[in-house]
Computed example of a mutant assay.
Amino acid sequence: MLALIDSHNHFDDPCFDPDRDATYQRARKHGVVAQVLAAVSARWWPRLKAITVRYPGLYAGYGLHPLYLAEHRPEHLDLLADWLVQEHPAAVGECGLDYYLPDLDPGAQADYFTGQLQLARRHGLPAIIHARRAVDQVIKYIRRYPGVRGVVHSFSGSVDQARRLLDAGILLSFGGPVTYPRATRLRALLRYLPLDGFMLETDAPDQPTCNRRGERNEPAFLPDVLACVAELRGVDPAEIAAATTANARCLFRIVDESSARTH
C-alpha cells in the first residue's frame, strides 16, 4: 500500500467527535500514515494537542487563522511563542491572509500573520499558510522574512504566483478542489509543477473531492486526490505518493516509523 501524508487537515474539529477512532483507523487502512493538524485559534490548542497525543502519526501546527480574527488578541502571539517552546510542534499555523470576506480587517490580519512568520523563523519551524484571494500579499510578507520555510495550503493561484512561492522556498499543497473538472487553471498548473514543490492534503472536514461533494471530508479520502493528480500528470500514483510523502517528511520533520523500525 502507498504511504501518504495528509499535509493539512482539522482532525480536531468537533464533527469528528462521534467517530474519531473509526475515522483515524479508516485513514490508516487507506495508507495515510501521518497527518498534520492546523490550529485555528488559541482556545483550540489544548484540544488539538490532546488529539495528537492520543493518535500515533498526528502532528500539530499551532497558530492563529485569519478567519478567526475576532477571537485573536495581541497577547496570543506571546502565548504562541510559549507553546512553540514547550510543545515542539511540527509547524506554526494555520496563519495567513483572507481577503474573500470583507469584514476581516486587512491590517489586523497582517499583524498576526507577520507575527507568526517571525515566530516561525525564530524557532526554525515551517509556516502553514492560508491565502484566499491574497496570494500576492502573502508573497510580499514572506519576502520580508527570508529563510522562512512553509506551505501555502489549498493553493489556487496562478503559475507566476506558484513560481514565486517556490523560488522563496515555500511549497504548495492541493486537495479536493483539484478533482473538480471546472478547476481548469488549477489542474493545468498541477501538470507542470516540479515533484519536489508540492504535497497532498484533505483540509478535512472541508473541501471534499468531486465524487464526495456535500459529504464530510476525512483523511481516508486522500487517495482520491492522489489518483487525480497522478492522472493529470500521466504517471503512476506511486511516483506522486513517494514524492509528496517525502516532501511532507522533509518540511515537517516527520520520521518514517517503518524505516526507523528496520534499523
Rank of each mutant, 00 (worst) to 15 (best):
L2A: 00
D6Y: 00
S7P: 01
F16K: 09
P18I: 05
R20N: 02
V32Q: 07
V33L: 12
V36S: 06
V40K: 03
S41V: 04
L48K: 08
L48C: 05
A50V: 04
V53G: 05
L58S: 07
A60P: 10
L67V: 10
Y68P: 00
L69P: 07
H76Q: 12
L84W: 09
Q86D: 11
E87N: 06
H88N: 15
P89F: 09
A91F: 06
V92H: 08
Y99N: 13
L101D: 05
L104K: 14
D105I: 14
P106M: 10
G107V: 01
Y112S: 04
Q116S: 03
R122Q: 15
A127V: 10
I129A: 13
H130S: 13
R132C: 08
V135H: 15
I139Y: 11
G150K: 07
H153Y: 07
A162V: 02
R163K: 14
R163S: 12
R164E: 15
R164Y: 04
D167S: 14
G169Y: 00
G175Y: 04
V178T: 10
T184W: 04
R187G: 08
L190W: 02
R191T: 14
R191W: 03
Y192I: 14
Y192Q: 13
L193T: 12
D196H: 11
G197N: 02
G197Q: 02
F198D: 04
F198Y: 05
P205L: 12
C210P: 01
R213Y: 06
N217A: 05
E218Q: 12
E218H: 08
A220M: 00
L222K: 02
P223E: 09
D224C: 08
L226M: 03
C228H: 01
V229P: 01
D236T: 03
E239D: 12
A243T: 08
A243G: 07
A248P: 05
A248G: 03
C250I: 12
D256V: 09
A260H: 12
T262Y: 06
H263W: 13
